[in-house]
Computed example of a mutant assay.
Amino acid sequence: MKLRILLLSALCLVVSSFGQKKTKYESFKNELSQKKYSSEVVLDKALNYSSHNDIYVSELIDACRFFSSDRRKYRICVNAYPRVIDKRNFFQVYDLFNSFSLAMKLYHNTQANQSAISQINYPNVDYYHGLTTNACNRPMADFQFRNMYNEVRNRRNYNIRSIKQFISNNCLSTRQIMKLTETLQSERDRFELLQFAFPYSFDLENFYYTEQLINDNFLKQRLIRFIDREIAQMNNNSGFNDCRPLSQSEYDYVLKSIQDERFSKERLKLAKQHIERNCFSIQRIRAIVKEFSFDKDKLELLKLSYQNCPNKEQFYKLKETLSFSRHKREFDQFLLNR
Results as ranks from 00 to 15, higher is better:
3 L>E: 06
9 S>Y: 01
14 V>Q: 09
17 S>G: 09
18 F>D: 01
20 Q>R: 11
27 S>E: 11
29 K>D: 11
37 Y>R: 15
39 S>R: 15
44 D>V: 07
51 S>C: 08
51 S>G: 04
53 N>R: 07
54 D>Y: 15
60 L>W: 04
65 R>Y: 08
68 S>Q: 10
75 R>Q: 08
80 A>F: 08
82 P>S: 10
82 P>R: 03
84 V>N: 04
85 I>H: 10
86 D>S: 07
88 R>F: 02
100 F>I: 11
101 S>N: 06
101 S>A: 13
102 L>I: 14
108 H>W: 06
111 Q>G: 13
111 Q>E: 08
118 S>Y: 07
118 S>V: 05
120 I>E: 07
124 N>Q: 07
127 Y>V: 14
127 Y>R: 14
130 G>C: 08
130 G>S: 05
132 T>L: 02
138 R>N: 12
143 F>M: 08
145 F>V: 04
152 V>Y: 01
152 V>G: 05
157 N>L: 05
160 I>G: 15
163 I>T: 09
167 I>M: 02
170 N>G: 05
170 N>D: 08
172 L>E: 00
173 S>D: 00
188 R>D: 14
190 R>E: 10
204 L>V: 02
205 E>Q: 06
206 N>K: 00
218 F>R: 12
219 L>A: 09
220 K>P: 08
227 I>S: 04
228 D>H: 02
244 R>K: 13
245 P>E: 08
250 E>R: 06
250 E>Q: 09
252 D>A: 13
257 S>D: 02
259 Q>R: 04
269 K>E: 03
270 L>S: 14
272 K>A: 11
272 K>D: 07
275 I>V: 03
282 I>M: 05
289 V>P: 00
294 F>E: 10
296 K>P: 00
298 K>L: 07
299 L>V: 06
303 K>R: 15
311 N>V: 07
315 F>S: 04
317 K>E: 14
319 K>R: 11
322 L>Y: 01
325 S>A: 14
329 R>Q: 15
330 E>W: 00
334 F>W: 14
335 L>F: 13
335 L>G: 01
